[in-house]
Write a protein that binds this DNA or RNA. Sequence first.
DNA 1: ACAATAAATGAGAATAAGTCTCATTTATTT
DNA 2: AAATAAATGAGACTTATTCTCATTTATTGT
Lengths: 148, 148
Amino acid sequence: MKNMTQEPRNILSQHKVSITNPRIIVLDTLLDFGNPITIEELQSKLKGKVAKSTLYRVLNDLKKINILNEFTSPDNAVVVELILEEDSHHHHLFCSDCGEVIDVELSDEFEMMLVKEMEKVQKELNFEIKDHRVEMFGLCTDECSNCE
Amino acid sequence: MKNMTQEPRNILSQHKVSITNPRIIVLDTLLDFGNPITIEELQSKLKGKVAKSTLYRVLNDLKKINILNEFTSPDNAVVVELILEEDSHHHHLFCSDCGEVIDVELSDEFEMMLVKEMEKVQKELNFEIKDHRVEMFGLCTDECSNCE
DNA sequence: ACAATAAATGAGAATAAGTCTCATTTATTT
DNA sequence: AAATAAATGAGACTTATTCTCATTTATTGT
Ligand SMILES: [Mn+2]
Ligand SMILES: [Mn+2]
Ligand SMILES: [Zn+2]
Ligand SMILES: [Zn+2]
């Protein structure tokens, strides 16, 4: 049985955000794409359906309720991705050629070691570390449909 | 004895880039600041000395000869830093409050483990990984002069 | 279900980071 | 020192994102 939280209407009501057409459409598009997506690509998918200003507003709404992650790719494209409850902590791999962004889960041992490193840094620099991010850069090989 | 490579004129001539005033001034400012700096802050330091268009051109020149690293902070500010020969591989810590960016060197054991993780990912995803970046987010504590 | 109220939207104007143009200045080469 | 090539400054231009405001849509209370 499919997770109810993945329905746009449920996601919105769970977060006490009013259910509107543009919000449903944007969520649907993000859920359907299923991967990190550039604003540019998202805009092209929504052309004629959601106004540009509304798209940015909806994305901000989703950020505010902490279900949208935003970051910048090495070629300075803004990328967003939904954070679903079922998603586990992960990182990203960027293709320098086609710009594709791929989710990557690293091993628990590695994540534990990273936490230890952060604890060391915290003490040394007297800084309270809340979060981290690991980004990997490289090149898609043969099976990428975008680069060739 | 101070490293000759740290003199703007030497840096430029070593990279076969012509020695001009704006380039010297920008390099001096970056060297003097000694830390990653936002474009905004850099511009304010250069106000009246180097034209905006020239600043961007010089930064591009430095990127081309691979002595400038550029990245985006979590609040979407563009940050640059000089890559000096004496610098070792390192990562960054961002204060979510004041925006400060701090260099962080992680342990060799950690870096080795990260390389191993990347090798695993490479095989699994058939992706050629060239580089990586670890970013840590948090809050400066007491001794930060910017946040208070 | 219906009116009243509050919130969200669309269209396009405004803002601002970064790029481009071109006349002038500066560096390099001869 | 003159000739040539490269770099600069000023401001125009481009474009991603934000803002404004009149209209539409959602929510609430009856
Ligand atoms: Mn992801
Ligand atoms: Mn650094
Ligand atoms: Zn690719
Ligand atoms: Zn701080």
